[in-house]
């Protein structure tokens, strides 16, 4: 299911370089700004599904929101976000042009489809509105288009569903409607922020399968923001792992699960319970290899490696120095890891 690792295309669809997001600190003297995203760089190719994985406070959602200029008002965002080879830096676009990108070339879906849909309008009206926001169609034509979008996301009986209100749909059906709206303008990229977290496992599997099918049929690229490594394994071509506001590891998904390079990824994957555990011997199964402590507070990050306080493999440089994101793959852009253990020989100083 996971395609073999290939070099990144020469011109990626989306390129994020040195993205930083900070918030003003407390007003008291000496209150320093809080850095929630600390120099994030990665790229997404056309038709690629990239998983952006991390826990709360890792900066994954802020990274995604910044792409569309949706970071909170008091956030200071810097860096470069380029869409397409000739694309302008999205961070420099004015509100009007940004609005054309948003929902135009880049669609977005969220965790809670129930709260993202308007309860007092029909599904047909809302999808048609999304169509008309980006294409000059008559009401009637937009409604026809809405029906075919609903069919594309495999909502059963799309014609009849046009007249339904959101509360008449199940959670999975609402998420399909959200995806239909995100597809309305024929985007190149879909940002999906925890799209299945609020759904049951069987429905989650259906929605993930839908995203994979849309990638195959439309060549849609997807940035899938999630805390669930299982979702990444099931769906993604490549994974970008975030911790403490930084990218700590990036790898093709298959390679990430076969041989995680960063101690955080390694420890986290080892700590997850397995279905196979049930067949283990004895009444009390051996304890899981848990990671001690908790993810860092963005307002109180350690001076060195963000994972060092919880890391079983930490050594001399870790508490004081911040590791870089070292290239560790077969070719540039293949795999990266932000750990001194992965520092290339001669890479000191």
């Amino acid at each position: 299911m996971l395609p073999a690792a290939a070099p990144l295309p020469a011109s990626p669809l989306l390129e994020i370089a040195d993205l930083r997001v900070s918030f003003p600190g407390s007003r008291r003297p000496g209150g320093r700004p809080i850095e929630a995203v600390r120099g994030v760089s990665f790229a997404i190719g056309r038709g690629e599904i990239v998983g952006l994985v991390g826990e709360s406070g890792s900066g994954k959602s802020l990274t995604a929101l910044s792409i569309l200029g949706l970071a909170p008002r008091n956030a200071r965002v810097s860096g470069r976000i380029r869409l397409g080879p000739e694309g302008e830096d999205l961070l420099t676009l004015g509100p009007r042009r940004l609005r054309r990108v948003r929902g135009g070339r880049v669609g977005m879906i969220f965790q809670e489809p129930a709260s993202a849909l308007n309860p007092v309008f029909t599904v047909g009206f809302q999808v048609a509105e999304a169509v008309r926001a980006h294409r000059p169609l008559s009401r009637r034509a937009a409604l026809d288009e809405a029906e075919s979008l609903l069919a594309r996301v495999a909502l059963p009986e799309p014609r009849r569903r046009l007249g339904d209100y959101p509360h008449q749909l199940s959670g999975g059906q609402r998420q399909r409607v959200m995806i239909a709206m995100a597809l309305a303008a024929g985007p190149d990229l879909l940002l999906a922020d925890e799209p299945t977290t609020a759904l049951d496992v069987t429905v989650q599997a259906q929605i993930l399968a839908l995203l994979c099918r849309l990638r195959d049929e439309l060549g849609l690229a997807v940035l899938l923001i999630t805390h669930d490594f299982g979702v990444v394994a099931e769906t993604c071509d490549r994974a970008v792992v975030m911790y403490g506001g930084e990218v700590v590891e990036e790898a093709p998904a298959g390679a990430l699960f076969r041989a995680p390079a960063h101690p955080y990824t390694r420890a986290l994957l080892a700590s997850l319970p397995r279905l196979e555990a049930a067949s283990g011997p004895g009444r009390f199964r051996p304890p899981l290899p848990a990671i001690p402590g908790q993810p860092p507070d963005p307002a109180a990050l350690p001076p060195g490696c963000a994972f060092e306080p919880r890391c079983a493999e930490a050594f001399a440089p870790c508490p004081a120095e911040r590791p870089e994101l070292y290239e560790i793959g077969a070719f540039p852009g293949d795999r990266r890891s932000r750990c001194f253990l992965n520092r290339p020989p001669g890479g000191e100083g």
Binding site: L208, F229, G230, V231, A233, R258, A259, L269
Partner: peptide, 8 residues
């Protein structure tokens, strides 16, 4: 439906 963790 439990997501399969690939290699692990």
């Amino acid at each position: 439906a439990v997501p399969n963790r690939g290699g692990v």
